[in-house]
Amino acid sequence: MNEQRIAVITDSGTDTPADFVAAHDVRVIPLRINYSDGSSYENGVDITTEDVVRRFDEEIPSTSLPSPMKIRDTFEQARRDGYVGAVVVTISSGLSATNETMNMVARQMEDFPVVVVDTKSIGVAAGLVVMEAVRQVEAGMPLDRIGSVLGALSERTRVYFSVQKLDFLRKGGRISEAVYRVGSVLNIKPVLMCDEREGKYVIAKKARGWSRALDAQVRLVVENARQWGRVRLAVCTYDPALRDELVARVREHVGAVAEIVELVSCGISADLLVHTGPTLVGMAVQGI
């Protein structure tokens, strides 16, 4: 527990690395994975990413928010564990109502102040903001200032991702039917990002073929790193071998133009793969 006794809480969609979560007592509220037979699971609690991927041939499930009761229970448990307040870091409000629900429950808490931060991002890019929340709390940043600090950091955090197959993005309504048809016929792979204003998916680049899409992601990260000069980076994918290859590429190319303070590599949580499929490759860059 940090000396301020401020808890750091997030949702599973931020993909904050598990070892960091364990080392710093970050409380993760799981999103839910739902199947058509009525079964429902808490991501990372009673279903794993591997479980979900194995069942993709049978069914692509849906996801849902953690319930207000689950969020309230997490806040109350933090209080029982000796914390006197909390900072909550969520995935983009433009992609999920998780942030809105966290805010609603936070307003109902008495004598337990809660600051909720909208990263306007998703996956490990949002996870980088969670990690900075921990550093700020442990360094003594007051709770009434941490929201503005993390909000400014979120504006300097970018995520880029692409997939080999567009079917999952189409099913989840993340891309239009026109983009899906053109991409499928012409082998166009859009590189997506979260826009800075609303945190919704927009196309950052279009590339013909998978290899060029990955190249485009690396170039976008390099462009941001060159602008900021000093950065934290992250690479995430379900495929460990590809992850290692991309980490080496990102380190080489970004290292030529900027100082890399940290480079995080991780897998991808089930609630994100449901909407993108197992071929997802994500890269994040954060100016510091």
Rank of each mutant, 00 (worst) to 15 (best):
K165G: 03
V53T: 07
R170G: 05
G127A: 01
S39R: 15
H275S: 10
P30K: 04
A139S: 10
V129K: 01
A207N: 12
V191P: 00
R54L: 11
E262K: 10
H24R: 14
E155M: 14
P30E: 09
V235C: 02
R219W: 06
L186F: 15
V116E: 04
S62I: 04
Y201C: 05
R5G: 09
G209Y: 12
T48G: 05
V124F: 04
A234R: 00
D19P: 06
S40L: 06
A23P: 09
L153Q: 12
S64R: 05
V137A: 10
V185A: 14
A22H: 13
E245Q: 13
V114Y: 12
T90W: 00
Q4V: 06
M102Y: 15
D46C: 05
I9C: 01
Q164G: 14
V274N: 03
T16P: 01
D15W: 05
F56R: 04
G85N: 05
Q164S: 12
V84I: 15
A86G: 03
A152V: 03
H275T: 07
A125E: 03
V285L: 06
G13Q: 08
L150S: 09
S62Y: 02
R79A: 15
V250E: 07
R208E: 09
G199T: 02
V222N: 01
M1C: 07
P17A: 02
V116N: 01
V87C: 05
I47H: 00
V221I: 13
R135S: 06
A241P: 00
E196I: 11
G277C: 03
I175P: 03
S184R: 15
V117N: 01
R145Y: 11
M109V: 05
D118C: 08
L169H: 12
K200M: 09
T279V: 03
V231H: 06
G127Y: 04
A97T: 12
L233T: 06
L246H: 06
G229I: 05
T48F: 00
G282N: 01
I146M: 04
D215Q: 14
T101A: 11
A7G: 00
L150G: 10
V124L: 13
G147I: 00
V231L: 06
L192D: 03
H24P: 00
D195F: 04
A133P: 01
L214W: 02
D19N: 10
D46M: 07
L272V: 11
D111S: 13
R145G: 08
G209V: 08
S93N: 10
P190V: 03
H253M: 12
D19S: 12
Q227S: 13
A284F: 09
V235S: 04
S92I: 04
S39Y: 05
V28T: 09
R27C: 11
H275W: 09
Q136D: 13
R54Q: 13
T101R: 05
Q217H: 08
P190L: 11
R174I: 05
R72V: 01
I260M: 11
R156F: 02
T157C: 02
